[in-house]
Deep mutational scan, measured.
Amino acid sequence: TIDDAFRAIERAIQAENEGRYREALKHFLDGGEMIVTAAEKEASQKVRNLLLHKGKEVLEWAEHLAEWILE
């Protein structure tokens, strides 16, 4: 659900702030994927587009974090 997705993102932010970057990455990926999944089930085109945009933002952040971890 969207609530689960945002809880995962909150955990990711907390982990990132505490320097637990790999854990943060996992939570960002989980949250982003949950948002995209919820968007695919959404009946309203406007809400679907907003959710897809937010999911994409979260997944892009996860990608940047992963690249930073690997440096």
Rank of each mutant, 00 (worst) to 15 (best):
T1I: 12
T1A: 10
T1M: 12
I2A: 04
I2L: 14
I2K: 03
I2D: 01
D3P: 05
D3G: 11
D3N: 10
D3Y: 11
D4P: 00
D4N: 04
D4Q: 09
D4G: 04
A5M: 05
A5T: 02
A5K: 00
A5E: 01
A5F: 09
F6H: 04
F6E: 03
F6G: 01
R7I: 09
R7C: 08
A8Q: 08
A8S: 06
A8M: 14
A8H: 11
I9L: 12
I9C: 06
I9E: 00
I9T: 00
E10R: 13
E10A: 09
E10S: 07
E10W: 13
R11T: 05
R11V: 08
R11N: 08
A12D: 00
A12C: 10
A12L: 03
Q14F: 07
Q14M: 10
Q14A: 11
Q14K: 06
A15P: 01
A15H: 10
A15T: 02
A15R: 02
E16D: 15
E16S: 15
E16C: 15
E16W: 15
N17L: 14
N17R: 15
E18Y: 03
G19T: 00
G19I: 03
G19Q: 04
G19F: 03
R20L: 04
R20Y: 06
Y21H: 01
Y21N: 00
Y21P: 02
R22G: 08
R22E: 14
R22Y: 14
R22D: 08
E23C: 06
E23W: 01
E23G: 00
E23R: 03
E23Q: 04
E23A: 06
E23N: 03
A24F: 03
A24S: 03
A24W: 08
L25K: 01
L25T: 01
L25R: 03
K26A: 08
K26Y: 05
K26M: 07
K26L: 08
H27E: 05
H27N: 10
H27M: 12
H27K: 08
H27L: 15
H27P: 00
H27R: 03
F28M: 05
F28N: 00
F28W: 12
F28V: 03
L29A: 01
L29Y: 05
D30C: 14
G31A: 15
G31Q: 05
G31D: 02
G32S: 09
G32C: 13
E33R: 15
E33W: 14
E33N: 14
E33Q: 15
E33A: 14
E33H: 14
E33D: 08
E33L: 14
M34G: 05
M34P: 00
I35H: 03
I35A: 04
I35P: 03
I35W: 02
V36Q: 07
V36D: 01
V36Y: 09
T37D: 05
T37I: 11
T37A: 14
A38Y: 11
A38Q: 07
A38I: 12
A39N: 03
A39W: 08
A39S: 06
E40R: 12
E40H: 13
E40Y: 15
K41S: 08
K41D: 06
K41T: 07
E42K: 04
E42A: 08
E42H: 08
S44N: 14
S44L: 12
S44Y: 04
S44R: 05
Q45C: 14
Q45H: 10
Q45G: 11
Q45S: 09
K46S: 13
K46N: 07
K46H: 14
V47I: 15
V47F: 12
V47A: 06
R48Q: 07
R48C: 13
R48A: 08
R48L: 08
R48W: 10
R48K: 12
R48H: 09
N49P: 02
N49E: 14
N49T: 07
L50Y: 15
L50S: 07
L51H: 00
L51S: 00
L51Q: 00
L52K: 07
L52T: 04
L52I: 09
H53E: 14
K54D: 01
K54P: 01
K54N: 03
G55A: 15
G55F: 14
G55L: 15
G55Y: 15
K56V: 05
K56R: 11
K56H: 05
E57G: 03
E57S: 05
E57L: 15
V58R: 00
L59S: 03
L59E: 02
L59F: 09
L59D: 02
E60I: 07
E60C: 11
E60R: 13
E60W: 07
E60T: 08
E60A: 10
W61C: 12
W61G: 02
A62E: 00
A62Y: 03
A62H: 01
A62V: 07
E63I: 11
E63Y: 13
E63C: 12
E63H: 10
E63W: 14
E63N: 13
L65N: 00
A66C: 15
E67Q: 13
E67C: 10
W68D: 01
W68Y: 09
W68A: 06
I69G: 00
I69S: 01
L70Q: 12
L70S: 06
L70W: 13
L70E: 11
L70G: 08
